[in-house]
Simulated assay, not measured.
Amino acid sequence: MIIRPLEKRDLKFIYKQQNARNVMALWFQEPYTSIDELEILYDKHVLDQTERRFVIDVDKQFAGVVELMYIDYLHRNTEIQIIVDSKYQGQGLAQMAMNKGLEYAFKVLNMHKVHLYVDVENKAAIHIYNKLGFIKEGCLRQHFFAEGKYHDSYIMGLLQSDFSE
């Protein structure tokens, strides 16, 4: 398993993910994206220095994405997000891919802190984030709307000094 930069050829897989309600509910986003919109967004953001999008690549197959979003070079922090394709879940890829994303954030971008948001009900994700060293920093009550209701979300953070590969 490797992570590599997202390329235009990957958009067909992103399209599939971003239109799956159960997948986008985990990111608290509406499952509504056209391939045309994805291509426009790709072209618009391909040179954007405030984000990095990586494909989780397993034997040259698209297995998901890891994203560093809202990269702040002044305060040296960023948000991390991950989606593992359903056919690759349960194989430990999420933890490995997150670790590689964190390594990039801390060792390449020199971020001081990486944070994420996770639904308080997403026990599997919380377990992985805890294993990686993330700490719950707070609970945002009814902060995100997905699947017809408001969800509480933990904000979790990891400092560079606490990161171990």
Score class of each variant (00 low, 15 high):
residue 8 K to N: 02
residue 98 M to E: 04
residue 124 A to G: 01
residue 43 D to A: 15
residue 13 F to V: 11
residue 103 E to K: 15
residue 22 N to S: 12
residue 120 V to C: 09
residue 2 I to A: 11
residue 107 K to Y: 00
residue 145 F to E: 00
residue 149 K to E: 00
residue 129 Y to N: 14
residue 139 C to H: 12
residue 121 E to C: 11
residue 32 Y to L: 15
residue 79 E to T: 09
residue 20 A to T: 13
residue 15 Y to S: 05
residue 2 I to K: 13
residue 85 D to P: 01
residue 32 Y to Q: 15
residue 110 N to P: 03
residue 10 D to Y: 08
residue 150 Y to W: 15
residue 137 E to Q: 13
residue 164 S to L: 06
residue 31 P to C: 13
residue 99 N to F: 05
residue 20 A to Q: 05
residue 82 I to A: 02
residue 80 I to Y: 01
residue 31 P to M: 12
residue 22 N to F: 03
residue 74 L to E: 10
residue 64 G to D: 03
residue 67 E to V: 07
residue 46 V to G: 01
residue 110 N to Y: 02
residue 142 Q to M: 06
residue 52 R to G: 08
residue 118 V to H: 02
residue 42 Y to N: 09
residue 93 L to Y: 05
residue 114 V to T: 12
residue 19 N to V: 09
residue 8 K to L: 10
residue 128 I to Y: 01
residue 43 D to Y: 05
residue 24 M to K: 01
residue 62 F to I: 14
residue 63 A to L: 03
residue 22 N to G: 10
residue 58 V to G: 02
residue 99 N to W: 04
residue 126 I to P: 06
residue 118 V to T: 11
residue 144 F to L: 07
residue 65 V to P: 03
residue 134 F to A: 04
residue 99 N to H: 08
residue 56 I to S: 06
residue 156 M to H: 07
residue 115 H to C: 13
residue 163 F to S: 09
residue 40 I to C: 07
residue 100 K to R: 15
residue 137 E to S: 13
